[in-house]
C-alpha cells in the first residue's frame, strides 16, 4: 500500500508545474550560484560538493513544502475526507505523500549533478561512488519520514505555509548543507545534531569528498524513524480531534 501510494503521488507531483519548478529549475539556479561562488572563492576543486549541496537544498525544499502542505493540499483538492475514511491507519495513508515529496526531491539532486557535469564540466569523481548511490535513497526516504512529522505538526497550525516559508533557509544553514557547521555560532550545534537533514547532507558529503558514510546514514535513518513514530502518534491524535470537533475539512 505504501509503495503503490508513493508511486501514485510521485506521478501526481511530477505533473505539477510548480513542483517541477521547485524540484528542477530552482535547484539548478542554486547550483549555478554555488558554482560561481565557489569559483570566486578559489574553491574550484569543491564544485562537486557545491552541486551535491545544491541538490540537497532542493530535496529539503521539496520535503518542506510538499510534506508541510500535504494535508492542506488534500483539503484544497477535497480529497482529505476520502483518504481519512480509508480503513487504514492515517500514517499509512499520509506516509506515501511525504515519501513522494522526498522522492521528487531526488530530481533536484540528479538535476544539479547533471547540470554541473554538462555545463561546467564538473567531474563526478565521488570518493565512494557506490556508497553515494546506496546512501542517497536511504537519506531521501529518511527525509520523507521526517516529512510525516512536519505534515502532522503543520496540520495543527492554521498558517502552516508561513512556517514552511520560514524554515527553508534556517535548515539549509544549520544543517551545514553548503555552509560548514563549524563557522556557525556554537549554540546551533545541538540543533544541527537533532536534524536528520544535517546527517543526510553529511552522509552525501562524505560519500562525495571522503569520510565514514555509514554512521551518518545510520544516524539520519535513526532520527527519521523517531520522527516517523512521533508523526504517526500525532496524526492519530489529530485525526481523532478533527473527527470529534468536525473540523477535518476546514481550511
Amino acid at each position: 500500500m505504501i509503495a503503490i501510494g508513493t508511486l501514485l503521488h510521485v506521478k501526481q507531483l511530477s505533473r505539477s508545474g510548480l513542483e517541477l519548478t521547485i524540484s528542477l529549475f530552482i535547484p539548478i539556479v542554486q547550483a549555478t550560484l554555488a558554482v560561481y561562488l565557489f569559483r570566486s572563492g578559489g574553491e574550484s576543486h569543491r564544485l562537486l560538493d557545491a552541486a551535491v549541496g545544491a541538490g540537497m537544498m532542493g530535496v529539503w525544499s521539496s520535503v518542506l513544502f510538499g510534506s508541510g502542505g500535504a494535508i492542506q493540499s488534500q483539503r484544497w483538492q477535497g480529497t482529505l475526507e476520502m483518504i481519512m475514511l480509508a480503513p487504514r491507519r492515517p500514517v499509512l495513508v499520509l506516509l506515501p505523500i511525504t515519501l513522494a515529496t522526498a522522492l521528487t526531491g531526488t530530481y533536484a539532486l540528479l538535476a544539479t549533478l547533471l547540470w554541473g557535469r554538462l555545463l561546467y564540466g564538473i567531474r563526478l569523481d565521488f570518493v565512494h561512488p557506490a556508497a553515494f548511490v546506496a546512501a542517497a535513497p536511504v537519506v531521501i526516504l529518511s527525509l520523507g519520514m521526517f516529512g510525516l512529522l512536519l505534515a502532522a505538526t503543520f496540520v495543527l497550525l492554521r498558517n502552516a505555509n508561513a512556517l514552511a516559508n520560514t524554515l527553508e533557509y534556517p535548515v539549509w544553514l544549520v544543517s551545514g548543507i553548503l555552509v560548514p557547521i563549524t563557522v556557525l555560532p556554537t549554540w546551533t550545534t545541538p540543533l544541527a545534531a537533532a536534524l536528520p537533514t544535517t546527517w543526510a547532507a553529511r552522509a552525501l558529503r562524505e560519500a562525495t569528498a571522503g569520510g565514514p558514510v555509514w554512521p551518518s546514514v545510520g544516524i539520519c535513518a535513526g532520527i527519521s524513524l523517531i520522527c516517523l513514530a512521533l508523526g504517526a502518534f500525532a496524526l492519530t491524535h489529530v485525526e481523532r480531534r478533527a473527527r470529534a470537533a468536525a473540523t477535518l475539512a476546514l481550511a
Partner: peptide, 12 residues
C-alpha cells in the same frame, strides 16, 4: 545570514 556565512567561508 545564509549567504553572509557562506561568503565568510568562501571569502568571496
Amino acid at each position: 545570514l545564509f549567504f553572509a556565512y557562506l561568503g565568510r567561508e568562501l571569502q568571496v
